Structure formats: structure tokens, C-alpha cells
Amino acid sequence: MAGEARYEELMRQFSAFGAVKRELGRILPSDCPSGSTAVLTLLSRHGDMRMSKLAELLVVDMSVTSRHVAHLAERGWIERSPDPADKRSRIVRLTPAGWSQIDELSRRTTRLLEERLRDWSDDEVDQLTRLMQRLRSSFDDCRTTAHRPPQPPAEPPAPPPAPPALDQTTRTPANT
């Protein structure tokens, strides 16, 4: 039961983390909601990519990705171009204005985190970063294995051992 209580407390902390995310969301420009920010951030980290890859990284449906991309393209922060390898697909890339927007978003979030975590030591911030990366990695592992088809065993399982032979003789007590 001690393990269960530990995970219940972890769930309470995840719920409380929602307040942190909401506050981070409040510092975003009104024309750059969190979904758009996620697209810009992924493009800045991973470079140009197909819309399908972007949807995969966002872990959302392609229609949601398309709405985010359209919103950002209207503002001139990204551009879409045909994929030379497959003209039906689109490659998405940041524009210079998009890079400027990323810089502004980074400045805003950095200032807020510095303000809120000013009484944390560098080691504590580093530890939180490592633990959050590890948590994310654990969930990424679950997501990729959930979609993977079951793999056949390397070798067929060994047959179960045969039950011991029953002694068919009946014994009666000896008269002594």
C-alpha cells in the first residue's frame, strides 16, 4: 500500500502542475496559443519536417496539426512547401519571423522561470530537468511500444513437463 500512496501523491502533483502550465500559457502572446508554440518549438529543435512527422511529435491528429500550421502560416512564422520526394506531402519550416517569435517566447518563459525558481539552487533546477526528461522518456517508451505489434518469441516455448507417472498398485497394510 505504501507504493500506491506514493503514486497517488504523484498524481496530485501532476494535477498541481496544471497551474504551472496555465501560468506559462498566460505569458504567451494572444496570437500564439500553446499549440502554435509547440509547433514553433518543435521546428526550432528538429528543423524542417513533413506535416506527418510534426503530427507524430505533437502526438495529435493530422487535422489538429493542420490547423496549427495554418494559423502559423497566416502570421508568416512558418512556410509550407511541397515535399520534393512526395508532392502530396508538405514540408514545414520556420521563417525568419518565426525564429524571432521563438526568441521572444524563449525570453518570456526564461524570465518567468527565473522569477519563480529564484530560490532554487542550480543543482535543484538541474535535478528537476533530469527527472522531467526521464519521466517524458518513460512515457515516450510506452507510446512507441503500445503501437508495436507483438513480437513472436525467439524460440518456441518448451512444452510443460509431463506429470509424474501414478503408481497403479494398491497397497494394503501388512498384517504383522
Rank of each mutant, 00 (worst) to 15 (best):
M1H: 09
G3D: 11
R6W: 04
E8R: 09
L10A: 05
S15Y: 15
A16I: 11
V20Y: 06
G25H: 06
S34E: 11
T37N: 12
T37Y: 07
A38T: 09
A38K: 15
V39M: 02
L40I: 10
T41V: 10
T41H: 14
T41F: 09
T41M: 15
T41R: 10
L42C: 13
L43W: 00
L43V: 03
S44T: 02
S44H: 05
H46T: 05
G47W: 01
G47H: 02
G47V: 04
D48I: 13
S52E: 03
K53Q: 14
L54N: 01
A55K: 03
A55F: 08
L57K: 04
L57C: 10
M62D: 13
S66I: 05
V69F: 01
H71Q: 11
A73G: 07
R75Q: 14
W77H: 00
W77K: 02
R80M: 00
D83V: 00
D83Y: 00
P84F: 03
I91E: 02
L94C: 02
P96H: 11
W99T: 10
S100Y: 09
R111T: 08
D119L: 13
W120T: 10
D123Q: 11
E124N: 12
L128C: 08
T129R: 06
M132N: 08
S137W: 15
F139H: 13
F139R: 12
C142A: 14
C142D: 13
R143V: 13
H147E: 11
A154E: 15
E155T: 14
E155G: 07
P156N: 05
P156Y: 02
A162L: 14
Q168H: 14
T169Q: 09
